[in-house]
């Protein structure tokens, strides 16, 4: 049952993420990206990682994608503002894409579905256990990453304020 749901949702994720690339209209791309993130949320729920699922739901679907949509609506992109695509860029794009495919195939070859990783603690994704892990053994990396985010935030504020200070 769970495996069938997984394959169904995984197919949906792939279809939606392909639609992100193939959609002509940038707004449609963003909407497909939102659907892709929604299928990821379902994946997290299937993995019994409820906290991660809800956070993915709030942060990615509810906040970051709203900002993406906001910016795209403000820019109001259309045919005239589309950047020109020279043949050089196309060739570079093909080479980069080819490299990615080779890497993906290489990593998929070493992965095997015959010996799946089994979680020792089934309830690890529940919020209480996750909190104990994060604030216990992983306290230092957790605090460091929060410091990094704070630095990024202060930097962003500083960059947007710079004009005012000089004037």
């Amino acid at each position: 049952m769970s495996t069938q749901v997984f394959y169904f949702v995984a197919t949906l994720s792939i279809i939606f993420s392909l639609m992100v690339i193939f959609a002509k209209n940038p707004i449609h791309s963003v909407l497909y990206l939102i659907l892709t993130f929604f299928t990821f949320t379902v994946h997290y729920v299937l993995l019994n990682a409820q906290f991660l699922a809800v956070v993915n739901f709030i942060v990615y679907m509810g906040a970051i994608m709203v900002l993406f949509l906001f910016v795209l609506m403000l820019l109001n992109l259309n045919k005239d503002t589309e950047p020109s695509k020279s043949p050089l860029i196309k060739i570079v794009g093909v080479i980069a894409g080819g490299c990615l495919v080779v890497t993906l195939i290489g990593s998929l070859k070493s992965a095997s579905i015959n010996s799946p990783l089994i979680l020792k603690n089934q309830g690890l994704g529940l919020v209480e256990n996750l909190g104990k892990e994060l604030f216990g053994p992983f306290l230092l990396p957790f605090e460091l990453s929060s410091l990094l985010l704070l630095a990024a935030m202060v930097g962003a504020v500083l960059l947007s304020k710079r004009d005012e200070v000089e004037a």
């Binding site: 739901f57 679907m61 709203v66 906001f70 609506m73």
Partner: peptide
């Protein structure tokens, strides 16, 4: 009774704006 009930409410609230955004666009 999910163990992240408050966050679920929060997620639903944050999703609510899409109706307005999509309709408006």
């Amino acid at each position: 009774d999910i163990n992240v009930g408050v966050l679920y409410i929060f997620g639903v609230v944050s999703l609510g704006v899409y109706g307005v955004m999509i309709g408006g666009w």
